[in-house]
C-alpha cells in the first residue's frame, strides 16, 4: 500500500468515525433541541411540576422500552407488550382484590400487595419466556409470534376481567403508582432503577456481551460457543418481566386495571427504542439511548399537548418521527461502514 493510498484510507476511516459518533449523539441533540423549542414557545414547559409529569408518563412505557432494547438488540421485536400490560395489571388487581367484583372502597378480601406484584411479574415473565421459546425453538419470526401474543394476552385479560375494570386498591398498592419520594414520583424511580440494572447487565456481564454478539451475527455467535437460543429466550423473558412490572405500576397509578389498558403501547415503546438509536437490524444500541428515546417521545407528546396541537396531529407527527429516526439509522450505517 502506498503512502497516498494509506492517507486515503485513513481519511475515509475518519469520516466513518465522525458519522458513527454523530449517530450516537443524535438522539441527545434532538432531545435538547425539542426542549429548547418547547420552552421558547411555552415557558411553562420547563416547570418542575411539568417535568415530573412528563417523566411519570414516560416511566411506564420506559420500563417496557428497557426490556424491548434487549429484544431488538437480538434482531427480535415484541408486539405483545401492550396486551401483556393489561393482562398482568389485571392479574395484580384480581390477586389484590381477591376477585373481579367489588367497588372502589372494598380492598379487604384479597391478598397482600406483595403477592399481587409477584403475580404480575410471574405472569409477565412466563408469557415472555413462552414467546421466546417459540421464537427460538420453532424458528417462527418474532413478529408473528408476538402478533399472536398481542391478541392472546388481550383475550385472556378480557376473560379474567369479564370485560370490566377492577378498581380500588390498598394505599400500599397505590403508592407504587402515585407515591412520591421527595419530589420524585415512585414510577420514575422504578424506571431509573430498571434502566440502571439493564445498563449494568448489558455492559458489564457476559450475558450482555452475548446479547450484542447474537444481534450482530447470530451464526458467528453460535460458532463462538454462545447459546443463541438461550439468549433469545432470556431476552423475551426480560421484556415479559418488564411488561409485568409496568402493568402493576400502571394499575397502581390509575387505581384500576382493565383489559383495554396499554392499547398501542407496543408502538410507543418500539418508537422510543428506535429513536434512541438501537438498530432494528440488531447488534447496536443500548439502554442509555433507550432512556433518551423514551424521554424524547414523552417530551414530544407533552409538548404537543401544551402547545394545544390536536391529538390526531400528534399521532401523525410521532409516526413521521419514527420513520425519520430509522431512515437516519440506515443512513448512518451506510456512511460509517
Amino acid at each position: 500500500m502506498t503512502a497516498e493510498e494509506h492517507a486515503e484510507t485513513s481519511a475515509a476511516l475518519r469520516r466513518a468515525r465522525r458519522f458513527a459518533l454523530l449517530g450516537k449523539l443524535a438522539p441527545l441533540i434532538f432531545l435538547l433541541a425539542l426542549v429548547v423549542i418547547f420552552t421558547s414557545l411555552q415557558p411553562r414547559f420547563l416547570l418542575p411540576i411539568n417535568i415530573f409529569n412528563v417523566l411519570r408518563q414516560v416511566s411506564i412505557f420506559g420500563i417496557i422500552a428497557v426490556g424491548m432494547t434487549f429484544v431488538i438488540l437480538i434482531r427480535g421485536i415484541d408486539l405483545s407488550v401492550g396486551s401483556l400490560v393489561a393482562l398482568t395489571g389485571l392479574c395484580a388487581a384480581v390477586v389484590a382484590k381477591g376477585g373481579t367484583s367489588g367497588g372502589f372502597s372494598d380492598a379487604g378480601d384479597g391478598y397482600h400487595w406483595t403477592i399481587a406484584v409477584l403475580a404480575a411479574l410471574a405472569v409477565g415473565t412466563l408469557a415472555g419466556l413462552f414467546q421466546g421459546m417459540v421464537v427460538a425453538w420453532l424458528a417462527v419470526p418474532a413478529f408473528v409470534v408476538t402478533l399472536g401474543g398481542l391478541t392472546i394476552f388481550r383475550g385472556l385479560a378480557l376473560a379474567i376481567g369479564n370485560g370490566g375494570p377492577v378498581s380500588g386498591f390498598s394505599p400500599e398498592f397505590g403508592w407504587w403508582g402515585r407515591g412520591l419520594i421527595g419530589p420524585v414520583p415512585v414510577p420514575v424511580i422504578i424506571f431509573a432503577l430498571v434502566a440502571l440494572i439493564a445498563y449494568l447487565v448489558l455492559t458489564q456481564t457476559r450475558f450482555g456481551r452475548s446479547v450484542y454478539a447474537v444481534g450482530s451475527n447470530p451464526e458467528a455467535a453460535r460458532l463462538s460457543g454462545i447459546n443463541v437460543n438461550g439468549i433469545t429466550i432470556t431476552s423475551f423473558g426480560i421484556i415479559g418481566f418488564c411488561s409485568g412490572l409496568a402493568g402493576f405500576v400502571l394499575a397502581a397509578r390509575l387505581n384500576s386495571a382493565e383489559a383495554v389498558a396499554g392499547t398501542g403501547y407496543e408502538l410507543t415503546v418500539i418508537a422510543a427504542v428506535v429513536i434512541g438509536g438501537t438498530s432494528l437490524y440488531g447488534g447496536t444500541g443500548g439502554v442509555v439511548g433507550t432512556v433518551i428515546g423514551a424521554v424524547l417521545t414523552g417530551v414530544l407528546m407533552n409538548g404537543l399537548v401544551i402547545l394545544n396541537v390536536s391529538p390526531y396531529t400528534q399521532q401523525v407527527m410521532i409516526g413521521l418521527i419514527i420513520i425519520a429516526a430509522v431512515a437516519f439509522d440506515v443512513f448512518i450505517k451506510r456512511q460509517s461502514r
Binding site: 457476559r206 456481551r209 450484542y212 454478539a213 450482530s216 451475527n217 451464526e219 458467528a220 455467535a221 460458532l223 463462538s224 460457543g225 454462545i226 447488534g283 447496536t284
Partner: peptide, 23 residues
C-alpha cells in the same frame, strides 16, 4: 471458520468484543 465476514466477525462490534466473544 472459513468465512470471515459471514461466520467469524461481529460487525459493528468493537475489536475488544470480537476478541472476547469466545470468553
Amino acid at each position: 471458520s472459513e468465512d470471515r465476514k459471514d461466520l467469524s466477525i461481529l460487525p459493528h462490534r468493537s475489536v475488544h468484543e470480537n476478541f472476547t466473544v469466545t470468553s
